[in-house]
Every structure is written in C-alpha cells, then in structure tokens.
Design a protein around this nucleic acid. Structure first.
Lengths: 237, 237
DNA sequence: TAGTGGTCTAGACCACGGG
DNA sequence: CCGTGGTCTAGACCACTAA
C-alpha cells in the first residue's frame, strides 16, 4: 500500500534503506534472513532477494554465504553512493554541505548534448544550472547540470538543496543508470575564483550522463572538484 | 557440460560475451529474445535473465522494454569495464597495449595495507610490482600492484601482459568486488620520466582495493595516468 | 494484436558456516 | 546438524513497442 506502481522490491529496498539510515539497523547488525523477510513481508523469496541485491550494490548491506546479511560497517561504505547524492552522503559524515546558485540560464545544446537528449534540430534550448557546493566552509566543487525544457520549473525551484530530492518529490523520477567519466581539467577563471585556487590548477572533472528509471535521458552533470582535497570513492560489485 | 561448478548463468554470460567479442554479434545487433534463449539453451527464463543482467551491467548489452536486447554500440561502451581489464578493453578499441616492468621488490607494508590484507604485525613483506603501460606508443599510466607472499611466484611470471589473466589461469582467482577511489596526484620524478610529462604535472590517481571471488583480499593497485589524454569511464546501473 | 522485456510467485535443491 | 544465502525451475501476469 506504500504506493501503487513502484515494484515491490523497490518498496522493500526503500524501507530497509530508511531503517538503516535511521539507525534502527546499525552498522554490523545482522538483518532478518531472507526466509524471515519472506514470511514477514509476504513477498516471495525472489523478490526479497532482489531488494537485498539493490542494497548490497549500494554498499549498505554485506552478504556472507552461510552466515547471513549484515549492515555494512560505516568505515567501509562508499563515500558517494549514487547519482546526485552528495547531500545525503556528506550529511552522513557529520559534515555540512551548503550550496550556492551561481548561474541559471538557457543555452544552445552542443552536438553531444543533442545526441544524449535525443533532440531534433529544432533548436530547443537546455536549462543550465551552475552551483557551488561547499563542505564545512571549504569549497568542494562547481557543479553544472543540464536539463531539457521539460524541467523548466526547476528554474524557479529552491536549488540550494539537493537536486536529487527535488526530482524525486516533484517529478517522481529517480536517477537509475548512467555513464560516469573521470578526467582532469584545469580551472577556468570563474572556477578558480569559486574554488579559491589559482587559475589553471588541476581539478578532477566528473561527467555524468544520467537516465531516469523510466529509461529516458534525465540530465547531464559536470562537476569539477579539488582533487587534492577530496577522494571520490565507488564500490564495485 | 561446459564446466561443472560454475553457475549456468555465468556459463551463458561467458558464451554470449565471447560471441560479442568475436564479432558474431556485432554492435547494434538484436540478440535472441529471452524466450528464444530459454528454449535454445534449455535454461529457465530467470537464469537467462540473470546472464543478460551481467552483460548489461558490463555495458555490453542494452535492453529496451518492448523491443528487445541489443549489443551496445561500441562508441557508448565503457572504456574500462572491470578490475584489471585494461588489456582486453584497449584491445577491443583496436589499439595496442604494451607493458614494461619497471620494478619488482619486496616492501614493508603501510598500516593501511596491513589492515586491508589482515596481516599480523609479523612483519610479513608485500610484493610490489611497478609497470608502465603504453597505448599505441603513448605512455598511459604507471601501475603499481601489491600482493601478499602467497603470490610470490608472480615475481617470476611474465608480467608484460595482463595480470588479470595470470591470476585467473594460475590461481583460479577472479577479481570480484572492491573499492575504487579517484583523486589527483602530482608526478614524482620517476613518474614524470616514465609518462613523459613535466615533474609536478597533475595526474589522475586511481586506487583499487580488490577482493577475489572467495571474499578474501586479493591485491591493491594504484594507477597514475595522464588525465589530460584519457577519460576513465564507468557504467552505472 | 503479437512479441518483447519487467515483475512476481512457490517451490526445489545445493553450498557454506558454525555448533 | 540446522540455518544461512546461492542457484534454478515453471509458470503467471503486466507494460511497453510496433505493425
């Protein structure tokens, strides 16, 4: 009854994720066995297993064959767990993330952007949002996001928080899959100013091409961050 | 009959992967439907789906609801698909990767390394292998790998190819899960020389803490690469 | 409407860990 | 030995795409 059309395994995964982040299921704790969850939820074991697989992939749960499933120790959790989740991940580390909107404008898409968004040559512009993200008063990164006109209302949204949350709550869209690339770029004048580094400094550049869970292109994101001050960690499995 | 204890879904995934890399299933081509594969292989649809999920995760296949499953276009494939797979991924792009062993030595582990490998304070040394990897005569990265004494025979192996292959063939161990981190470091004298860049140049640093499929710590790898010349791409799903 | 992939079930047997 | 997670099956119904 939580919702109508979201799959059962997503609902169960969301529920467990919430209980983990609440502290109800603390790190190191063994969670109920698949059989238990099957019985208490009424879902089949396959469905339960699919839920757990999601959380294992996110690094929140660890399975041990023959023993059970455990909440991953905080120390070995990925710092950044999924797309656009800077906000919550920073919060979990007990640090504060503030966001300042630097610029919002409509731009003519590049060829690469046109391809990704499957735009005709109709000259449809893209919404470009540039924000500065600051951790504990230290500038972390300059993030630029591009959206299609479909998301025009974002222009008037409160962008000083988590874009991820806005997308979920106002559009019922969850970033699902995507392509992420890492490279090095050098600080432009604006980036140097915002990040408080010399112009031309080496920055880590992370580009995301993100699809929503409906399979359609959602947005493009480009972050440039001070790679000397931060590490970007991902868990693979 | 392909093998005895490897799961059916792995066997099917391996088979399809081989057919894709052979060119038998070219990029863009639609592969047989899940129902077809179920009938021709005799495996259940769930098992077939699990195989496909693996290849989708690796970026080799793309599913489209209502249409079918297709071999991913080469242009949108991840450059580096899994741990230690530089060799095969470069090969797929039609480029040649050569490797030169720079240094092999036994070193005293750092605290971080001791923790990962679960070493006692017995002073057990680690095998450190440093190699230069060159793509089409352009130096790509300096890779340093650390192993426990268990892998001492590596010292006398042919290290000018794929470490990944040696581990699979001689130790029957497959890199499975791990933690990867991205940051920026600056070229040391040796790195500058090997990569043909000025000393102090910004390099992309990728650290891997890799576990084998038996769940035990396998090795640590550190790569520093010319982030101005290459992008490191990962597919998320 | 026919064919595709997406979700879900109920049940079976195996492999591993620890008493 | 028991309880855990890992693999696998046979079948059902739904949602999407395209003719």
């Amino acid at each position: 009854m939580t919702s109508q059309s979201t799959p059962l395994y997503s609902q169960l995964a969301d529920d467990l994720r919430r209980r983990i982040e609440n502290g109800e299921l603390p790190p190191g704790e063994q969670i109920p066995s698949e059989k238990d969850l099957h019985e208490t939820t009424g879902y089949s074991r396959s469905t339960v297993r699919k839920s757990l697989a999601i959380l294992v992939k996110e690094g929140l749960l660890t399975k041990v064959h023959g023993k059970g499933t455990f909440v991953t120790e905080a120390s070995s959790r990925p710092v950044i767990r999924k797309f656009l989740s800077l906000t919550e991940n920073i919060a979990r580390l007990g640090q504060t993330l503030t966001t300042k909107v630097v610029d919002i404008r409509w731009i003519v898409p590049t060829v690469e952007q046109q391809t990704f968004f499957q735009l005709n040559d109709s000259g449809e512009p893209l919404l470009e949002i540039t924000r500065l993200r600051i951790v504990d008063s230290l500038p972390l990164c300059v993030e630029t996001d591009w959206f299609t006109a479909e998301f025009a209302p974002l222009e008037r949204a409160d962008l000083e928080g988590s874009l991820y949350q806005i997308l979920e709550q106002q559009y019922q869209i969850h970033p699902a899959t995507g392509k992420k690339s890492f490279s090095i770029s050098y600080a432009s004048q604006q980036e140097a100013f915002l990040l408080d580094v010399p112009r031309g400094s080496a920055l880590m550049q992370i580009e995301d091409f993100v699809y929503g869970d409906n399979g359609f292109p959602l947005h493009i994101s480009r972050q440039v961050l001070r790679g000397d001050k931060f590490k970007y960690v991902v868990i693979e499995s």
